[in-house]
Design a binder for these strands. Structure first.
Length: 550
RNA sequence: GCCCCCGUAGCUCAGUGGAUAGAGCAUAGGAUUCCUAAUCCUUGAGCGCAGGUUCGAUUCCUGCCGGGGGCACCA
């Protein structure tokens, strides 16, 4: 619809210029948008205002000229007018909206898909939590944001791959092994101090018990062997748990990428050598440094410590190089806000390994404050007193948890109130949206029972303001997806769904779908089926179920 | 000290540089012999402060104030 209006305006420019009414054919980029106020029409163009400078004319004068030369060949316009400082407002005939219903039903599950991506490959990496403990609620937010973002980008025409990077190398894993090993020794009756820098959670003790049963050879093992075996067992076991928790949350990755594999294949060393050869990595004070300052970082960063051990940054360089070598046009990492200092570093790594850093983007997800009865729940991995993602999902359900995480922009820290998410009432927007789907399903069931059929040919009967309002909302779904994908803003989709749901509930309360007029009923059935389709498409993108009944 | 995010209605939050800044919750009142009341209708109040860019700033820039997070040869 916007494209149609845009071409009408462009044709008007040509004609006006041909008639000598305009100074130039050139206009700066202009917008056609849906005005905030309904009184300002269905669409509004700011072309006359942005063109004031180049045309050397007041905006309203330009608008007048354009309107004079504009032709509505397809007859969709009720009226067009100049308003305010020079907006051109378009008012569509109600009938102009009818085709959208047909478009929705023809496209079905694919309605809303756009082709911004044109098949280009995007990788979204998210969660990537260290396998040293169960996922907590903060990981959950990142997980859902990444998962929904991937689905939305996919709907935008990108070929998307979802990846989990496993930090299965380095000191944390050794600490994990040590923690389990020491607990195991305690279980055996050895009295020893459990160090503060070890993982304190109860799950460590459970892992120790399990390891004791499964690996009899641990009985005679020395510390080195014991720690190594416990580390591998614990990491594998925790990772399996993470995978389960994610699956229960509806999050499934396409690829699980091991950090250790980058060491095993020699990739990390090779990349460091390359960078050293090109002078990006240099030696100082016995350590090796990466010149991240060349990419606006505050200071250079260490990649190999003076004890010869590589830092995580070293493998991160190799990892991100590897990503682009796999052929992705864009790479998006979803990180917790506490990692924001890493952005410049990784951008530097991407740039230094031969890729335009613009192709690498980071979604920084702000923190989650978990509340229960208004009181904050303490979250600390160290103390072991934290709410796991699993506990939250078990308590409030997958659908509510996902919706809550997604309905706020990830740039804002989130108060997640467990009690609110559990409520099955108006306070809880996820039910509000799902209820529309269920309600429509119920009407469709009843229509089937009463043998009332949908009839596309009766659509012209739909003229109630609430019906037109619904169609306008339906028409905006594809552009909502496009904006959500282009700006990497998944929260637009839940907001859209709440608005559509509201429009439907209003309609439902004012008009009966199945009434005495058979033709009208047939038309309305078509309309509500298209609403149901769009609600479902939106929920699918968010990974939330669309129930047939509630 | 430096960096990032946030500051919009009593609360939680929307708002691709546009016209009279919107929802939900909470408050108060009302609607169901009828397709699911997990619904609908009515009701008040707001852009932290000061400059700048612009025809036009809640939006962009600078400074200040307030809240959160981050600033290791840690992971």
């Amino acid at each position: 619809m916007k494209d149609h209006l845009r071409s009408m305006i462009e044709k008007a420019i040509d004609r006006a210029f041909g008639a000598g009414s305009l100074l130039s054919r050139e206009f700066p980029a202009f917008d056609i948008e849906v005005p905030r106020a309904e009184a300002h029409g269905d669409f509004s163009a700011n072309i006359a205002m942005v063109g004031a400078k180049t045309q050397k004319m007041p905006p309203r004068k330009i608008a007048e000229i354009l309107l004079f030369h504009m032709e509505d060949t397809s007859g969709i316009l009720e009226k067009k007018e100049i308003a305010g400082p020079g907006f051109i407002n378009f008012y569509l005939k109600p009938s102009a909206w009818l085709p959208v219903v047909q478009r929705v039903l023809e496209a079905g599950n694919t309605f809303g898909r756009v082709d911004e991506g044109k098949g280009r490959r995007v990788q979204v990496e998210f969660v990537s939590a260290n396998p040293t403990g169960p996922l907590h609620v903060g990981h959950g937010r990142g997980a859902v944001v990444g998962d929904a973002m991937a689905a939305i980008l996919s709907a935008c025409g990108y070929a998307v791959e979802k990846e989990y990077y496993i930090n299965d190398s380095g000191r944390q894993i050794r600490t994990l092994g040590n923690s389990v090993w020491l607990r195991l020794k305690q279980i055996r009756g050895e009295s020893l101090e459990f160090p503060e820098d070890c993982y304190q959670g109860d799950y460590i003790r459970e892992l120790a018990l399990e390891a004791k049963d499964r690996f009899p050879e641990l009985a005679g093992a020395d510390d080195e062997k014991g720690v190594a075996l416990c580390a591998r067992f614990a990491a594998d076991s925790i990772l399996a748990g993470i995978r389960e928790d994610l699956e229960a949350f509806g999050v499934v990755h396409d690829q699980w990428f091991s950090e250790q594999s980058l060491y095993d294949s020699g990739t990390v060393d090779a990349v460091l050598k390359e960078l050293e050869a090109s002078g990006v990595v240099y030696e100082m004070d016995g350590a090796k440094w990466f010149k991240t300052t060349d990419w606006q970082d505050e200071k250079d960063r260490v990649v190999v410590r003076n004890n010869g051990i590589t830092t995580y940054f070293a493998s991160d360089i190799a990892y991100h190089k590897n990503k682009f070598e796999r052929g992705f046009d864009r790479v998006i990492d979803v990180w917790g806000a506490d990692h924001h200092g890493y952005i410049k570093r990784i951008k530097a790594a991407v740039g230094a390994t031969g890729t335009d850093p613009e192709r690498f983007q980071v979604i920084l997800v702000q923190l989650v404050a978990l509340l229960r009865n208004g009181q904050p729940v303490a979250m600390s991995t160290r103390s072991g007193e934290f709410e796991t993602l699993k506990a939250v999902v078990d308590e409030v359900g997958k659908d509510a948890a996902r919706f809550f995480f997604l309905m706020r922009s990830y740039e804002t820290s989130l108060d997640f109130d467990l009690e609110l998410a559990k409520k099955k009432s108006n306070d809880n927007p996820v039910f509000y949206v799902q209820y529309v789907h269920a309600r429509i399903a119920s009407i469709l069931r009843k229509a089937a029972e009463e043998k009332i059929h949908e009839d596309m040919n009766q659509l012209f009967l739909l003229q109630e303001p609430e019906e037109i309002a619904l169609m306008k909302h339906l028409a905006r779904f594809p552009e909502t997806i496009a904006l959500s994908g282009a700006n990497l803003e998944p929260h637009r989709v839940p907001f859209y769904l709440m608005e559509l749901a509201s429009a439907f509930h209003t309609y439902y309360n004012r008009h009966k779908v199945l009434g005495e007029d058979a033709a009208m009923s047939s038309a309305r059935l078509v309309l509500i089926r298209s609403v149901q389709q769009v609600i479902r498409n939106g929920l699918v993108l968010l990974g939330i179920s669309a129930p047939e009944e509630m």
